[in-house]
Computed example of a mutant assay.
Amino acid sequence: MLKSSKRLIGKSILAGLVASALGVSPVLAQNYPNKTITLIAPYGVGGDSDFSGRNLAAVANKLIGQPVIVQNVAGASGTIGSQKVRTSPPDGYTLLISRGGSQAITPALDSNTPYKWNDFTMISLLDFNPVVCVVKPDSPYKTIKELIDGIKANPGKLNYATAGPGTTQHLAVEVMLRDVGLPSSAAMMIPYKGGGQASAALLGGEVNFLCNNLTTMVGQIKGGAMRALVTSTSNRLKEFPDVPTAKESGIPSLEQVMGWSGLYGPPGLPAEVVNKWQAVLKEVAKDPAWLRGNDTVGAIPAIRSPQETEKFAREQFELYSKLGAELNLKK
Protein backbone atom coordinates (compact mmCIF):
# COMPACT_ATOMS: atom_id res chain seq x y z
CA MET A 1 0.00 0.00 0.00
CA LEU A 2 2.85 2.35 0.92
CA LYS A 3 4.69 1.63 -2.33
CA SER A 4 1.50 2.18 -4.31
CA SER A 5 0.90 5.53 -2.60
CA LYS A 6 4.48 6.60 -3.30
CA ARG A 7 4.02 5.72 -6.99
CA LEU A 8 0.83 7.77 -7.16
CA ILE A 9 2.52 10.71 -5.46
CA GLY A 10 5.46 10.41 -7.83
CA LYS A 11 3.16 10.41 -10.84
CA SER A 12 1.34 13.47 -9.54
CA ILE A 13 4.59 15.34 -9.01
CA LEU A 14 5.78 14.37 -12.50
CA ALA A 15 2.51 15.53 -14.04
CA GLY A 16 2.79 18.78 -12.18
CA LEU A 17 6.37 19.31 -13.37
CA VAL A 18 5.39 18.61 -16.97
CA ALA A 19 2.45 20.99 -16.73
CA SER A 20 4.63 23.67 -15.16
CA ALA A 21 7.21 23.28 -17.90
CA LEU A 22 4.44 23.87 -20.42
CA GLY A 23 3.21 26.89 -18.51
CA VAL A 24 -0.13 25.22 -17.72
CA SER A 25 -1.57 24.65 -14.26
CA PRO A 26 -2.26 20.92 -13.62
CA VAL A 27 -5.74 21.85 -12.30
CA LEU A 28 -6.56 24.11 -15.24
CA ALA A 29 -9.06 21.79 -16.91
CA GLN A 30 -11.17 21.39 -13.78
CA ASN A 31 -11.15 25.06 -12.79
CA TYR A 32 -11.21 27.00 -16.07
CA PRO A 33 -12.25 29.71 -16.00
CA ASN A 34 -11.86 31.03 -12.46
CA LYS A 35 -10.91 34.64 -13.17
CA THR A 36 -11.30 37.41 -15.74
CA ILE A 37 -10.54 36.53 -19.37
CA THR A 38 -8.94 39.23 -21.54
CA LEU A 39 -9.58 39.41 -25.27
CA ILE A 40 -6.78 41.33 -27.00
CA ALA A 41 -8.04 43.42 -29.93
CA PRO A 42 -4.87 44.13 -31.96
CA TYR A 43 -6.20 47.34 -33.54
CA GLY A 44 -7.58 50.58 -32.13
CA VAL A 45 -10.90 51.41 -30.52
CA GLY A 46 -13.72 51.59 -33.06
CA GLY A 47 -12.12 49.15 -35.51
CA ASP A 48 -13.31 45.71 -36.57
CA SER A 49 -11.36 43.71 -33.98
CA ASP A 50 -12.70 46.05 -31.30
CA PHE A 51 -16.28 45.50 -32.48
CA SER A 52 -15.91 41.71 -32.75
CA GLY A 53 -14.30 41.49 -29.32
CA ARG A 54 -16.94 43.59 -27.59
CA ASN A 55 -19.82 41.90 -29.39
CA LEU A 56 -18.46 38.53 -28.22
CA ALA A 57 -17.59 39.68 -24.69
CA ALA A 58 -21.07 41.09 -24.06
CA VAL A 59 -22.60 37.65 -24.61
CA ALA A 60 -19.75 35.40 -23.38
CA ASN A 61 -19.79 37.15 -20.00
CA LYS A 62 -23.15 35.48 -19.33
CA LEU A 63 -22.19 32.08 -20.71
CA ILE A 64 -18.69 31.36 -19.47
CA GLY A 65 -19.18 32.27 -15.82
CA GLN A 66 -16.42 34.88 -15.50
CA PRO A 67 -15.92 38.47 -16.72
CA VAL A 68 -14.69 38.77 -20.31
CA ILE A 69 -13.06 42.10 -21.13
CA VAL A 70 -11.53 43.61 -24.26
CA GLN A 71 -8.11 45.28 -24.25
CA ASN A 72 -6.96 47.22 -27.31
CA VAL A 73 -3.26 46.71 -28.06
CA ALA A 74 -2.80 48.53 -31.37
CA GLY A 75 0.19 49.14 -33.61
CA ALA A 76 2.39 47.65 -36.34
CA SER A 77 -0.53 46.39 -38.44
CA GLY A 78 -1.92 44.37 -35.56
CA THR A 79 1.30 42.48 -34.85
CA ILE A 80 1.97 44.03 -31.42
CA GLY A 81 -1.30 42.78 -29.93
CA SER A 82 -1.01 39.46 -31.75
CA GLN A 83 2.51 38.89 -30.47
CA LYS A 84 1.38 39.74 -26.93
CA VAL A 85 -1.07 36.85 -27.09
CA ARG A 86 1.37 34.49 -28.78
CA THR A 87 3.85 34.92 -25.91
CA SER A 88 1.23 34.80 -23.14
CA PRO A 89 0.88 31.73 -20.90
CA PRO A 90 -1.36 29.13 -22.58
CA ASP A 91 -3.87 29.17 -19.75
CA GLY A 92 -6.90 30.57 -21.58
CA TYR A 93 -6.97 33.92 -19.80
CA THR A 94 -5.39 35.95 -22.61
CA LEU A 95 -6.95 35.34 -26.02
CA LEU A 96 -6.76 37.13 -29.36
CA ILE A 97 -9.42 38.61 -31.59
CA SER A 98 -7.60 37.56 -34.75
CA ARG A 99 -8.00 39.54 -37.95
CA GLY A 100 -7.36 38.73 -41.58
CA GLY A 101 -4.86 41.59 -41.73
CA SER A 102 -2.76 40.60 -38.73
CA GLN A 103 -3.07 36.82 -39.00
CA ALA A 104 -3.02 36.20 -42.78
CA ILE A 105 -2.02 39.24 -44.82
CA THR A 106 0.91 40.51 -42.76
CA PRO A 107 2.56 37.08 -42.27
CA ALA A 108 2.06 36.43 -46.01
CA LEU A 109 3.63 39.70 -47.14
CA ASP A 110 6.25 40.57 -44.52
CA SER A 111 8.98 38.07 -43.68
CA ASN A 112 9.85 40.15 -40.60
CA THR A 113 6.49 39.41 -38.96
CA PRO A 114 7.36 38.02 -35.49
CA TYR A 115 5.04 35.03 -35.91
CA LYS A 116 3.72 32.67 -38.59
CA TRP A 117 0.08 32.41 -39.60
CA ASN A 118 -0.26 29.16 -37.63
CA ASP A 119 1.71 30.14 -34.51
CA PHE A 120 -1.52 30.19 -32.49
CA THR A 121 -4.18 27.84 -31.19
CA MET A 122 -7.18 28.42 -33.44
CA ILE A 123 -10.47 28.24 -31.55
CA SER A 124 -13.02 29.57 -34.05
CA LEU A 125 -13.88 32.14 -36.67
CA LEU A 126 -16.34 34.80 -35.48
CA ASP A 127 -17.51 36.91 -38.43
CA PHE A 128 -16.82 38.02 -42.00
CA ASN A 129 -16.69 41.69 -43.00
CA PRO A 130 -17.31 42.83 -46.60
CA VAL A 131 -15.03 45.59 -47.88
CA VAL A 132 -16.67 48.79 -49.14
CA CYS A 133 -14.88 51.71 -50.81
CA VAL A 134 -16.23 55.11 -49.75
CA VAL A 135 -15.78 58.85 -50.18
CA LYS A 136 -17.27 61.82 -48.36
CA PRO A 137 -20.70 62.90 -49.62
CA ASP A 138 -19.27 66.17 -50.98
CA SER A 139 -16.59 64.33 -52.98
CA PRO A 140 -16.60 65.04 -56.72
CA TYR A 141 -16.48 61.25 -57.29
CA LYS A 142 -20.02 59.83 -57.46
CA THR A 143 -19.07 56.33 -58.66
CA ILE A 144 -16.09 54.01 -58.40
CA LYS A 145 -15.42 54.61 -62.11
CA GLU A 146 -15.21 58.35 -61.51
CA LEU A 147 -12.79 57.77 -58.61
CA ILE A 148 -10.58 55.53 -60.75
CA ASP A 149 -10.67 58.09 -63.57
CA GLY A 150 -9.63 60.73 -61.03
CA ILE A 151 -6.68 58.61 -59.93
CA LYS A 152 -5.64 58.10 -63.55
CA ALA A 153 -5.87 61.84 -64.25
CA ASN A 154 -3.89 62.76 -61.12
CA PRO A 155 -1.29 60.03 -60.54
CA GLY A 156 0.12 60.11 -57.01
CA LYS A 157 -2.13 63.00 -55.94
CA LEU A 158 -5.17 61.24 -54.45
CA ASN A 159 -4.65 59.53 -51.10
CA TYR A 160 -6.41 56.89 -49.05
CA ALA A 161 -6.43 55.78 -45.40
CA THR A 162 -5.45 52.33 -44.10
CA ALA A 163 -4.84 50.65 -40.74
CA GLY A 164 -1.23 50.21 -41.89
CA PRO A 165 0.70 48.51 -44.68
CA GLY A 166 -0.40 44.97 -45.46
CA THR A 167 -3.89 45.36 -44.01
CA THR A 168 -7.22 44.74 -45.70
CA GLN A 169 -7.62 48.48 -46.37
CA HIS A 170 -4.25 48.57 -48.12
CA LEU A 171 -4.59 45.37 -50.13
CA ALA A 172 -8.09 46.24 -51.32
CA VAL A 173 -6.77 49.40 -52.99
CA GLU A 174 -3.75 47.57 -54.39
CA VAL A 175 -6.03 44.96 -55.97
CA MET A 176 -8.33 47.63 -57.36
CA LEU A 177 -5.43 49.55 -58.91
CA ARG A 178 -4.01 46.38 -60.43
CA ASP A 179 -7.35 45.46 -61.99
CA VAL A 180 -7.47 48.79 -63.87
CA GLY A 181 -3.80 48.69 -64.90
CA LEU A 182 -2.44 51.26 -62.44
CA PRO A 183 0.72 50.98 -60.29
CA SER A 184 0.73 51.21 -56.50
CA SER A 185 2.15 54.72 -56.77
CA ALA A 186 -1.00 55.96 -58.54
CA ALA A 187 -2.60 56.68 -55.14
CA MET A 188 -0.84 57.54 -51.87
CA MET A 189 -1.44 55.38 -48.80
CA ILE A 190 -1.77 57.17 -45.43
CA PRO A 191 -1.47 54.67 -42.52
CA TYR A 192 -3.36 54.97 -39.22
CA LYS A 193 -3.45 52.77 -36.11
CA GLY A 194 -6.76 51.09 -36.85
CA GLY A 195 -9.86 50.92 -39.02
CA GLY A 196 -11.70 53.35 -36.77
CA GLN A 197 -8.99 55.99 -37.11
CA ALA A 198 -8.87 55.40 -40.86
CA SER A 199 -12.60 56.11 -41.06
CA ALA A 200 -12.18 59.21 -38.91
CA ALA A 201 -9.46 60.43 -41.28
CA LEU A 202 -11.88 60.29 -44.20
CA LEU A 203 -14.61 62.06 -42.24
CA GLY A 204 -12.09 64.73 -41.23
CA GLY A 205 -11.07 65.39 -44.83
CA GLU A 206 -7.52 64.10 -44.34
CA VAL A 207 -7.82 61.60 -47.22
CA ASN A 208 -9.75 61.36 -50.48
CA PHE A 209 -11.12 57.84 -50.16
CA LEU A 210 -11.08 54.67 -48.10
CA CYS A 211 -11.66 50.98 -48.73
CA ASN A 212 -12.56 49.55 -45.35
CA ASN A 213 -14.57 46.78 -43.76
CA LEU A 214 -18.27 47.60 -43.71
CA THR A 215 -18.49 46.93 -39.96
CA THR A 216 -16.47 50.07 -39.26
CA MET A 217 -18.51 52.35 -41.51
CA VAL A 218 -22.08 51.08 -41.70
CA GLY A 219 -23.42 53.80 -39.40
CA GLN A 220 -21.75 56.61 -41.36
CA ILE A 221 -22.99 55.20 -44.68
CA LYS A 222 -26.55 54.84 -43.41
CA GLY A 223 -26.36 58.31 -41.89
CA GLY A 224 -25.08 59.92 -45.08
CA ALA A 225 -21.64 60.86 -43.73
CA MET A 226 -20.01 58.57 -46.32
CA ARG A 227 -20.93 57.61 -49.87
CA ALA A 228 -20.35 53.93 -50.73
CA LEU A 229 -19.03 53.31 -54.25
CA VAL A 230 -18.44 49.54 -54.42
CA THR A 231 -18.63 46.38 -52.28
CA SER A 232 -16.39 43.31 -52.36
CA THR A 233 -19.35 40.92 -52.02
CA SER A 234 -20.41 38.78 -54.99
CA ASN A 235 -23.98 40.04 -54.63
CA ARG A 236 -25.26 43.48 -53.72
CA LEU A 237 -25.63 44.10 -50.00
CA LYS A 238 -29.13 43.73 -48.61
CA GLU A 239 -28.74 46.95 -46.61
CA PHE A 240 -27.29 48.88 -49.56
CA PRO A 241 -28.90 47.58 -52.77
CA ASP A 242 -27.75 50.61 -54.78
CA VAL A 243 -24.03 49.93 -54.20
CA PRO A 244 -22.60 47.92 -57.12
CA THR A 245 -20.43 44.85 -56.64
CA ALA A 246 -16.76 44.67 -57.59
CA LYS A 247 -17.53 42.48 -60.58
CA GLU A 248 -20.19 44.89 -61.80
CA SER A 249 -17.67 47.72 -61.46
CA GLY A 250 -14.94 46.09 -63.53
CA ILE A 251 -12.66 45.29 -60.57
CA PRO A 252 -13.50 41.59 -60.00
CA SER A 253 -10.37 40.80 -57.98
CA LEU A 254 -11.70 42.95 -55.15
CA GLU A 255 -14.02 40.04 -54.34
CA GLN A 256 -10.99 38.21 -52.98
CA VAL A 257 -10.53 40.78 -50.21
CA MET A 258 -12.82 40.19 -47.24
CA GLY A 259 -12.21 41.12 -43.62
CA TRP A 260 -12.75 38.55 -40.87
CA SER A 261 -12.37 38.05 -37.15
CA GLY A 262 -11.61 34.91 -35.16
CA LEU A 263 -10.79 33.77 -31.65
CA TYR A 264 -7.21 32.51 -31.21
CA GLY A 265 -5.13 31.53 -28.20
CA PRO A 266 -1.40 31.19 -27.54
CA PRO A 267 0.30 28.08 -28.91
CA GLY A 268 -0.20 25.04 -26.71
CA LEU A 269 -3.61 26.04 -25.40
CA PRO A 270 -5.07 22.95 -23.67
CA ALA A 271 -7.85 21.09 -25.44
CA GLU A 272 -10.07 21.62 -22.40
CA VAL A 273 -9.93 25.39 -22.91
CA VAL A 274 -10.65 25.09 -26.64
CA ASN A 275 -13.56 22.74 -25.95
CA LYS A 276 -14.95 25.09 -23.30
CA TRP A 277 -14.93 27.98 -25.77
CA GLN A 278 -16.41 25.83 -28.52
CA ALA A 279 -19.32 25.00 -26.23
CA VAL A 280 -19.75 28.68 -25.37
CA LEU A 281 -19.54 29.74 -29.02
CA LYS A 282 -22.27 27.28 -30.00
CA GLU A 283 -24.53 29.22 -27.66
CA VAL A 284 -23.18 32.56 -28.85
CA ALA A 285 -24.07 31.62 -32.44
CA LYS A 286 -27.73 31.40 -31.42
CA ASP A 287 -27.78 34.42 -29.13
CA PRO A 288 -30.13 37.17 -30.40
CA ALA A 289 -27.98 39.97 -28.98
CA TRP A 290 -24.84 38.68 -30.75
CA LEU A 291 -26.69 38.18 -34.02
CA ARG A 292 -28.28 41.61 -33.72
CA GLY A 293 -24.86 43.16 -33.13
CA ASN A 294 -23.56 41.62 -36.35
CA ASP A 295 -26.63 42.76 -38.28
CA THR A 296 -26.18 46.30 -37.01
CA VAL A 297 -22.74 46.62 -38.59
CA GLY A 298 -23.21 44.39 -41.64
CA ALA A 299 -21.03 41.54 -40.34
CA ILE A 300 -21.76 37.95 -41.41
CA PRO A 301 -21.75 35.38 -38.53
CA ALA A 302 -19.09 32.73 -39.13
CA ILE A 303 -18.53 30.57 -36.03
CA ARG A 304 -16.66 27.39 -37.03
CA SER A 305 -14.85 24.39 -35.57
CA PRO A 306 -11.08 24.65 -34.85
CA GLN A 307 -10.40 22.42 -37.86
CA GLU A 308 -12.54 24.53 -40.19
CA THR A 309 -10.92 27.67 -38.79
CA GLU A 310 -7.42 26.37 -39.47
CA LYS A 311 -8.37 25.33 -43.01
CA PHE A 312 -9.82 28.79 -43.71
CA ALA A 313 -6.79 30.55 -42.17
CA ARG A 314 -4.43 28.47 -44.32
CA GLU A 315 -6.40 29.32 -47.47
CA GLN A 316 -6.31 33.01 -46.56
CA PHE A 317 -2.55 32.92 -45.99
CA GLU A 318 -1.98 31.16 -49.31
CA LEU A 319 -4.29 33.59 -51.12
CA TYR A 320 -2.43 36.66 -49.84
CA SER A 321 0.95 35.05 -50.44
CA LYS A 322 -0.05 34.59 -54.08
CA LEU A 323 -1.51 38.10 -54.34
CA GLY A 324 1.56 39.55 -52.66
CA ALA A 325 3.84 37.88 -55.19
CA GLU A 326 1.68 39.02 -58.10
CA LEU A 327 1.55 42.59 -56.80
CA ASN A 328 5.23 42.64 -55.80
CA LEU A 329 4.27 43.50 -52.21
CA LYS A 330 6.38 40.90 -50.38
CA LYS A 331 9.19 42.09 -48.13
Rank of each mutant, 00 (worst) to 15 (best):
P89H: 07
A161N: 04
S88A: 15
K136F: 00
G150N: 08
G75F: 10
L177E: 05
F240C: 02
A201D: 07
G44T: 15
P266W: 06
G205K: 08
L63S: 08
R86T: 04
N328R: 13
A246Y: 00
G259Q: 11
E272F: 00
T113A: 13
L203T: 07
Y192T: 14
A29C: 15
I9G: 00
E272M: 07
K84R: 15
A163R: 03
A302N: 12
L96G: 06
S20W: 10
R236M: 02
L56D: 09
R292A: 15
A186V: 02
L171F: 06
R292H: 11
K84N: 08
A299I: 05
S52K: 02
P288G: 11
I303S: 04
N294V: 06
E255H: 11
S49K: 01
P306K: 07
P191H: 09
L263F: 07
K238R: 11
G195P: 04
A60E: 04
A58N: 12
K247E: 14
G65N: 11
N159D: 13
G259I: 13
V132W: 02
R178M: 07
N112Y: 03
N294W: 04
P266I: 14
S249G: 01
R227P: 00
K6R: 13
V45T: 15
L323G: 05
S124Y: 03
V85G: 06
S232K: 05
P270T: 14
A76S: 14
R227H: 14
G262I: 13
V243T: 12
L214S: 03
L147H: 03
P130Q: 09
V297Q: 06
L269W: 03
S12K: 11
G81M: 13
P306G: 06
T168A: 12
I148F: 06
R7V: 15
